[in-house]
Amino acid sequence: MWTKPWKMKEGFLIGGGLIIIGILLQILAGPVDWSCFAWPVNIIALIILLLLIGVMYALRKRVYPFEWMMHLGAAVPCIVYALSLTIVMGLCFQTETGGIPWLSRMLVFWPFVLIWTWMMLISGLAALNHLLRFKLKEIPFLLNHAGVFLAITLATLGNPDKKELTMTCYQDEVEWKASDEMGASEELDIAIELHKFIMDKYPDGTPKRFASDITVYTKGGKEVSGTVDVNKPMKVNGWKIYQYGYDVKMGAESAFSEFLLVRDRWIAGIYTGIFMMLAGALCLMLFMAPKPVKEERRDIQ
């Protein structure tokens, strides 16, 4: 062990080491505080991560573990750990308070975060390795690994910047204020005027449609009118406006409508990753699957 070439065993030991370090961090420093990654810390963290991957790649000939990280011996154990921890997450009810210590808040549990970070390092390195030795036939590999890296890394780092606010609008009133999940209210650069809340029902009484006729005003003087439906949000000034709620007691006669306003400046990067993964999945099926074995090898059976 620890003699070249490293195999999976070393990968399992490194993963186990990361879990032990994670548990120690959890005890000493408490759960991961994602809010401290808010802008501009997250962009700095991203640059450091990319530089780190670049430096690791550059030093791969001199520092053997970096070379090893680009290969399957590192990838397989890492996926096993990520899979196991995610299964634990799936089995333990996830909640902000109470529940099982550590395991009910997996997203801020250090071992989970460290293992997924380790996975991003490995897939980032593998992607860079294929990018710099670019050949046409490497495109599928590159799309898959760079796509996963981009989508997960940017979604995680960008999450603290994401704004999710709810706004309650009463009929014929212009509302500028929205509140976050803690209840803190703030004035926005857009306002919503509710003209009418719409609720249609099926003959059996189950709801068929929730929508709101609204006009959106911006501080810049823009005015946009339209209907916001469930599944059909409206986009104004970088905000996406979603139909979110209504006065349940009053039903179709509800005097107010509740909207969810979302602003995510990282979405373009995340979507780039997602579309790379979609293209990569197509390639996986078309080009990466092993070719059918030739006739003569069929005789083995």
């Binding site: 979604a155 969810l260 997602i274 993964m277 990569g280 699957a289």
Partner: peptide, 25 residues
């Protein structure tokens, strides 16, 4: 290989839809 490709499609279509319906992918 084929199954994983379709599984990835299903999962990511779900993410794109969730963004459209709930505001988060």
């Amino acid at each position: 290989y084929v199954g994983t490709a379709f599984l990835t499609f299903g999962m990511l279509f779900g993410a794109l839809w969730a963004k459209q319906a709930w505001g988060t992918y």
